[in-house]
């Protein structure tokens, strides 16, 4: 007999016991271990995802910060560059202004110095020239020049006309004191008479005249009556000469080219 009922029953029981044993010692622990591992892996993956997301967030934040920093830096750099440019421009301008001012001052100083020097030279030259001239004229005047000068003076008196003559006539008429004739040297009697005569004839009156010697008059004669004055002197020529030379020098000083 191939089938033994007791064996069937025993085997069925054996199998059921084996099912229980396997469940107890194999499937359950293995399943638990697998589940635990899967859970752990899932947790780790979730954790990794969270960390990744966080890292991504931080990276984004960092990038945003970096970009903002770059922009700020660029802005600051531009601002600093602009400021530096402006400052440079300002400094250059200030330096230029200062240089111009200094240049102008130097130029002015040079001009002033040149003028002063010219003035000094001129003054010295004038003084020397006039001293020589005066000396020469004084030497010459000591001989026959007085008469000649008196003659020139009388001719001028006679040639007077218009308001000048009228003014002098009025002054001579109203003067309480005698008219004063000053000369750099003592007039001899002859020229005195000639002057008296010329006055009398010119103004058709008997004019009282007082003669006086004044050494500061450079080889000249002058008539002073009540504030009115008629004069002739070499000093006048010298003065006009001095004036002419001074103008010439001034012109030269102003037209002198700038040396930079």
């Amino acid at each position: 007999m191939l089938i033994d009922w007791f064996t069937i029953f025993a085997q069925a029981l054996n199998f059921l016991i084996l099912v229980w044993l396997m469940k107890r010692y194999l499937y359950k622990p293995i399943r638990l271990a697998i589940d635990a591992r899967e859970k752990r892996i899932a947790a780790e993956l979730a954790d990794a995802d969270a960390k990744k997301a966080e890292a991504q967030k931080e990276r984004d934040a960092f990038q945003a910060k970096n970009e903002a920093f770059n922009l700020q830096r660029a802005a600051l750099l531009t601002q600093a560059t602009d400021e530096a440019k402006a400052e440079r421009q300002r400094l250059i301008e200030a330096a230029r202004v200062a240089a111009d001012a200094l240049d102008a001052r130097l130029q002015e100083k040079r001009t002033t110095d040149a003028r002063n020097l010219n003035q000094a030279i001129l003054s010295q030259a004038q003084q020397e020239v006039f001293a020589i001239a005066r000396k020469a004229l004084a030497d010459l005047a000591a001989t026959s020049l007085e008469e000649r000068m008196a003659e020139v003076f009388t001719r001028r008196l006679r040639q007077m006309d218009g308001p000048a003559k009228e003014g002098l006539a009025e002054a001579l008429r109203t003067a309480s004191a005698p008219a004063l004739v000053r000369s750099a040297f003592d007039l001899p009697a002859e020229p005195r008479e000639a002057i008296q005569r010329a006055l009398n004839e010119t103004f058709s009156a008997d004019i009282r005249v007082r003669f006086e010697t004044a050494p500061d008059l450079i080889s000249g004669i002058e008539l002073v009556a009540n504030g009115q004055k008629v004069a002739w002197s070499i000093a006048d020529y010298l003065l006009s000469l001095e004036k002419g030379i001074g103008e010439l020098l001034d012109k030269q000083a102003t037209s002198e080219p700038k040396t930079v």
């Binding site: 084996l18 044993l21 010692y25 194999l26 591992r37 752990r40």
Partner: peptide, 25 residues
């Protein structure tokens, strides 16, 4: 039959028990 079945049961159970004694998660 029964004896060999017991033997197989023993091998299976003991083997499972031994291996699952300290399972790693």
């Amino acid at each position: 039959t029964i004896v060999f079945t017991w033997g197989l049961m023993l091998v299976l159970t003991v083997g499972a028990k031994l291996i699952t004694r300290n399972l790693s998660v």
